[in-house]
Design a binder for these strands. Structure first.
Length: 959
RNA sequence: GCGGGGGUAGUCAAGCCGGACAACGACGCGGGACUUAAGAUCCCGUCCUUAGUGGUUCGUGGGUUCGAAUCCCUCCCCCCGCACCA
């Protein structure tokens, strides 16, 4: 199988591309443009990535067969440091990296040539196109391929940023970002591409509180600025040597590590001396906001590398503070050592500041008592702190102690109090990382101030509203995302759009020391595909891609003669490009993985709305979920990490494509399991065998079953068309590979043998399959003697007048009867010698049809039906028997759905249908089947079973 | 914390704008046909019970309804995103 599939895959791909059916040129047909969000070039991809890409090709193929002029371009996203870091590791001959490359099929002799970032980019651009996308038979327009580090792409991005600037959406302000002290900006993310340690660290924002103490300022760092009204004392670690730092006119006391970190965030800090913690103890410091002197007391829990190493004490709400106070009170020796007055220490009382549901006025005091904590090193202190903070922050309100903030919710008060203190010069902000982060180079990563960072102002209210309004008219899948995108667009704020440091990408047009970062240069790009081939094929030169050129072709601004004169581009070419843009744009579908929901898609949407006229705004988004490994991420040890070309060779591309399309809804993760692909592979074999059987049918005679199959095929076509309105490939695959196969098998089993029927069905069936399993479909199409590619044949449309409801109902009826016979045989264990069927007597059918009529007009009730039945002489004669049957019929029918009632209303001559099918039934059950009417008094009926016969439910007697 | 998704029979997985549901389908398992045999293939079955009937099911506990896997509420348990990372 696999050798054969590999051969036909190569054969048809070569033919398609030679015939250029994958290339899109403007013509008279309606257009359809679809992309997948291009992948970041970070190395080899795995079989999971092919899921979304395959959806795109299958949808594109379907639309093409439906008569659309389909534009399906592809590209790659090389911006960032993925290629840089990979090249670096290859240069260093990092063993893991080399092993990874070899395992993915990288030729050994190529590796030495992958030591420069752009070599890596160029190499993987080839890998993605040839080993993944062409290997899967994608009908993408390869001429339009682009990559974000290409110079022409850069021209486009620079133009985009000029337009953003024109729209007033570029702003500049200070920003605090993680950076290696050596290498510059780094990204802190779990995959640790830039890091050797600390990928899960978070940036925390401390509020620095300044306490005047003589001519010094003791500077405490807090995460809870709203608690300043509850301050009772100040904590200093007596064992630590703090530093004195000049900050403007002030002299600050902070820990040495915090000074080092702070020096990356605040300008002009100057180290001017040191001071021992123990020297400060016993002094008083004036607390901010409350402006009261509070005593400076010793505490071992103040760590120099957390915050500033100095802590303000709020014992009412901070368990650490209350615990330390309790311990100090008892510690006569320490108080004596630091010359503290025990009376004064013991006089310190927590000050209630927050009313929290479920707590008294002093949660920390309460919590420590309740948990019975008596030791300052008890790990439960941390737990208590978290719990109190969580409850206080979300359910608490500031009490009357808190001046103008009294009554506010804690989460509101926090921001307000912080702002008030900063405005009053009593506080500043300081950022730190929640855990140690180390750069790949081995140096520490700190939060560094970037004074002149550029942002895209996605928070712009007019932009947000316009985008939200437009989204309501878009086709966004899944429906949950259609709803959620509204909230995401609100939440999507200003975003840093450039960075410095070791980074591939396009220089920022207004200041080339900056490089446009990865999210920001991948938002408007689908429109670039409408023109990229003009540069790729040499018709458009790099230097001709000027601002006026883009203004003209994308925005319709300026005139052709002016732009032609300014750029030297042929006026005819300019017009052609402009018309291409207007023809292919807007984008009909942008498909991307679920990771894009809160980052790429909102940026994609807002950039379109910001830069382009409304008629070019996108029409659809499709979000797909992942293929995962057994335990979360796909991995080599757990399976699934096998290279894409290897999987294609082993299972066959079409089996994989069918797997992606059918294994689950696109909006759920699936677990990679080779057994699944094997079963799709054998499904394809069954389909092909059945196709062969159909081709072998030579009969001329038409029977009910022919009508039935044609009717079914048209139903299938209708179902697929309906499914594909929502791009539901799974339903399409279900119809084409499961339902249709079952229908055809039933046809053959029923003795269907008509060459015309077979030919018609085959033609429809193979076309139905072409979008998902195109190679095998082409092979079958050719085998049927068809001319041309099935890939560009018209997709089957349902012919309504060929749908034969009675024929389908009759077959369902027959199948029901068979299943009843089988049930009886199974339950009784009888090996039948003969089987008798008795169809319902005339009078029961009459009752049934009266009931159906009443049901149709909504008047069916048990007494109603009984009355109607009794009003007919012929039925009334039967007395109780008729009344009982009427009751049963009415009860049964009332439980049925509308659709079911309709089905029962379809006329069916049971007796003749069963009689006509008795040979088939006999063959199936392995015993002669005789069919009688219950009205036939001469029929043999040893056990009087005929009495049980009902409409659509013949009585059965097995001998 | 904020925001989002999900829990369906042995496994995977449809259904989820209420009604054809004991619940599509696949895999697994059991039986039969075919075959010298195995495999493949084709049929039948696979919650309990049963001459084709009936009963109990869709994380938990309630509720709405003539009727709920599908709608509402409680609780329990999993998963994902949160920004310079594509």
């Amino acid at each position: 199988m696999s050798a054969w599939t590999t051969a036909i895959e190569a054969k048809w791909q070569a033919k398609w591309y030679a015939a250029r059916i994958n290339e899109a040129e403007r013509d008279e047909r309606p257009k359809f443009m679809i992309i997948f969000a291009y992948p970041g070039l970070t190395g080899y991809l795995h079989v999971g990535h092919m899921r979304g890409y395959t959806y795109v090709d299958a949808i594109a193929r379907y639309k093409r067969m439906c008569g659309y002029n389909v534009l399906f371009p592809v590209g790659t996203h090389a911006t960032g440091n993925g290629a840089i870091s990979l090249a670096k590791r290859i240069k260093e001959r990092d063993p893991k990296t080399i092993e990874y490359l070899l395992a993915n099929g990288c030729p050994e002799d190529v590796i030495p040539h992958l030591t420069e970032p752009m070599d890596v980019v160029n190499f993987f651009n080839e890998v993605y196109q040839n080993q993944y996308w062409r290997r899967f038979g994608f009908l993408a327009d390869w001429r339009r391929f682009t990559s974000t580090t290409n110079p022409d792409y850069g021209k486009f991005i620079q133009w985009q940023f000029r337009k953003l600037n024109d729209a007033g959406l570029l702003i500049q302000k200070p920003y605090f970002a993680p950076a290696c002290v050596e290498c510059g900006p780094v990204a802190i993310d779990a995959s640790e591409t830039d890091l050797s340690k600390g990928g899960s660290a978070e940036t925390t924002e401390y509020t620095l509180l300044k306490f005047r103490c003589g001519d010094l300022f003791l500077v405490a760092a807090t995460l809870r600025p709203e608690t300043v009204y509850g301050q009772t004392n100040f904590w200093v670690n007596p064992e630590v040597e703090y530093v004195k730092v000049r900050r403007g006119d002030e002299t600050w006391v902070i820990s040495r590590p915090s000074y080092e970190k702070m020096s990356y965030q605040k300008d002009g800090l100057e180290l001017i001396g040191t001071v021992k913690g123990s020297e400060l103890i016993g002094k008083e410091a004036v607390a901010p906001v409350i402006h009261r002197p509070i005593p400076v007391l010793p505490a071992a829990f103040a760590k120099p590398d957390v915050g500033t190493g100095l802590v303000t004490s709020v014992p009412s709400d901070a368990p650490d503070d209350w615990m330390a106070l309790l311990l100090l009170r008892e510690n006569e020796e320490a108080m004596a050592r630091y010359g503290l007055d025990p009376e004064k220490v013991r006089a310190i009382r927590p000050i209630p500041i927050i009313d929290t549901k479920g707590y008294g006025p002093m949660p920390a005091v309460e919590m420590i008592e309740k948990m019975g904590i008596t030791d300052g090193n008890d790990p439960r202190l941390e737990e208590a702190k978290k719990q109190i903070y969580k409850d206080g922050f979300h359910t608490g309100r500031m009490n009357e102690t808190c001046a103008e903030f009294a009554g506010l919710r804690v989460d509101e008060a926090k921001e307000l109090i912080k702002k008030m203190m900063i405005d009053a010069g009593e506080a500043e902000v300081f950022y730190d990382l929640s855990e140690e982060v180390v750069c790949r180079c081995g140096k520490p990563v700190v939060i560094k101030k970037v004074p002149d960072q550029w942002f895209i102002d996605y928070g712009n209210p007019a932009l947000t509203e316009a985008t939200k309004a437009h989204c309501r008219s878009m086709h966004i899948l899944p429906p949950e995302f259609y709803t959620n995108v509204q909230g995401i667009l609100d939440w999507f704020r200003e975003r840093a759009c450039v960075r410095q440091g070791n980074w591939l990408g396009t220089p920022f047009p207004f200041d080339p020391k900056w490089i446009i970062e990865a999210i920001s240069d991948s938002t408007l790009y689908p429109i670039y595909y409408t023109i990229s081939h003009y540069h790729n094929t040499g018709l458009l030169k790099l230097e001709q891609m000027t601002e006026e050129f883009f203004d003209l072709v994308f925005l319709g601004e300026g005139t052709v003669p002016d732009v032609a004169a300014a750029t030297g581009i042929e006026p005819g070419l300019l017009r052609r490009i402009r018309e291409d843009v207007l023809y292919f744009y807007p984008l009909d579908i942008n498909l991307g993985g679920k990771e894009h929901m809160t980052v790429h898609f909102p940026a994609f949407l807002k950039n379109h709305v910001a830069v382009l006229p409304s008629e070019l705004w996108p029409r659809g988004i499709f979000v797909n979920w992942y293929v995962t490994g057994k335990l979360g991420k796909i991995s080599k040890s757990k399976g699934g990490a096998e290279p894409i070309p290897d999987a294609a060779g082993r299972f066959g591309v079409d089996a994989l494509r069918l797997y992606y399309a059918h294994i689950a809804a696109p909006f759920a993760d699936v677990e990679w399991d080779e057994g699944n692909i094997e079963s799709y592979s054998s499904r394809m074999e069954r389909v092909m065998r059945t196709v062969e059987e159909l081709k072998g049918l030579k009969g001329k005679e038409r029977s009910v079953i022919d009508q039935w199959l044609i009717s079914r095929m048209n139903n299938r076509a209708g179902n697929i068309a309906a499914a594909m309105d929502d791009y539901d490939l799974r339903r399409m695959a279900n119809e084409a590979y499961f339902e249709t196969l079952a229908d055809v098998r039933w046809y053959i089993r029923r003795g269907g043998n008509n060459a015309d029927t077979a030919a018609r069905v085959l033609s429809m069936w193979v076309r139905m399959m072409a979008p998902i399993t195109p190679h095998i479909a082409e092979e079958m199409w050719e085998g049927m003697g068809q001319k041309g590619f099935v890939s560009i044949a018209p997709y089957p449309e349902p012919m309504v007048d060929e749908i034969d409801r009675p024929a389908e109902v009759a077959e369902e009826y027959l199948a029901d009867v068979m299943s009843d016979i089988n049930e009886i045989l199974r339950v009784t264990g009888i090996s039948p010698k003969r089987i008798m069927l008795y169809t319902a007597p005339e009078w029961k059918r009459e009752v049934h049809s009266i009931a159906l009529e009443m049901a149709a007009e909504g008047s069916l009730t048990v007494p109603g039906l009984t009355k109607a039945v009794m009003s007919r002489d012929g039925l009334k004669r039967r007395g109780k028997e008729a009344a009982d049957f009427a009751r049963k019929t009415a009860e049964d029918l009332m439980k049925r759905s509308e659709a079911e009632k309709k089905r029962l209303s379809v006329k069916l001559d049971e007796l003749s249908y069963l009689t006509g099918s008795s040979a088939f039934l006999s063959k199936e059950v392995g015993a002669p089947v005789e069919v009688y009417s219950a009205d036939d008094d001469s029929a043999p009926d040893p056990q009087k079973k005929a009495r049980a016969a009902g409409p659509r439910r013949p009585a059965i007697y097995v001998e």
